[in-house]
Design a protein around this nucleic acid. Sequence first.
DNA 1: ACCTGAACACCGTTCAAGT
DNA 2: ACCTGAACACCGTTCAAGT
Lengths: 189, 189
Amino acid sequence: MTESGRRPRADARRNRERLLAEADAVFRAQGTNASLEGIARRAGVAIGTLYAHFPNRRALLGTLLRQRNEALFDRGADLLDQPSPAAALTAWVHAVIAHAAAYQGLAAMLAEGVDDEASELHQSCVQMTDIGDRLIARARQAGALRRDATGVDIFALMNAAAWIAEQMSAEQAGRLVDLAMDGLLAPTA
Amino acid sequence: MTESGRRPRADARRNRERLLAEADAVFRAQGTNASLEGIARRAGVAIGTLYAHFPNRRALLGTLLRQRNEALFDRGADLLDQPSPAAALTAWVHAVIAHAAAYQGLAAMLAEGVDDEASELHQSCVQMTDIGDRLIARARQAGALRRDATGVDIFALMNAAAWIAEQMSAEQAGRLVDLAMDGLLAPTA
DNA sequence: ACCTGAACACCGTTCAAGT
DNA sequence: ACCTGAACACCGTTCAAGT
């Protein structure tokens, strides 16, 4: 395995980086279900090397998303301090939709990841739900909510909209979000 | 080809029916992306026979959905005569979600079918959108709408909810619909 | 410690040959 | 008129053998 020793061998490190770079390019162009064989080929390594570094597709994807996730969660923390709780919640929903737009098929993997504790994406899905919970709590306290809702409801809306953006268009996804947020937020917001 | 002559040969007719029966069972159990090879095997025919009867997966699926679609559109016609336009629109949304729950993966094929005129499912998708348009027009006339919306918006909501039902749960899909319908329908409804 | 690539078990789709 | 099944071009994943 690649993880056992302390410093990876120089060629292993290079291979890992090339694999990540090509995976990003291929996932961007062809979606998260693109051929792993093709990624290995483009990275100039045998398919076995890809598997040695990343035991499965989700592990590869999870590594690619790590930096992006950090930026997203930083944004979530910022929004928790914003003056208007209702506007913050709406901005959060749009931020996650933009995040999920990185790769076609990502919305499905995220939706799968919330409930699957074994998924490499599980942790980040839980974190998204937590931020949703906190933003909702703030909005409720400010009297900006028209009805009950949880972080999971927000998670579902974000993923549904991200999926609609993939299947139909970003505009159509925006209209779905508008409808749902109209149902959630009190007009006083 | 199978369509050229007037009456199909008896064995061809039998094969076609067995293929449809097995396809329904397999799609129900494994979703719309299940192996066609497996369906042919279960139907006791060679894979070439499946392709002779149905040129692609969507054609097979479209034939399976024909009866189900008729029932759905009859329901839509009924709802257009119902006293409360707002309740009718909500009932329609739930009817389509239940329809899409037949096979895992169907929501994605429907969402694809609206824009793809070459799809065997295109016609039924357009019909769904039309019914949504008419139900919305009735609701607007009755003053039951809070904001602008089109049949396509309703189509997007139905499909998004059907997809959430597949990925998360029917309950979660229901909560999404509740949010969006709250945003769409005026409280006077 | 890491990499290679053959091996295995699957796919979808086409089409020449049969009946 | 219809059916068969080999053929082709792809997959994901594993693992013995190499360096």
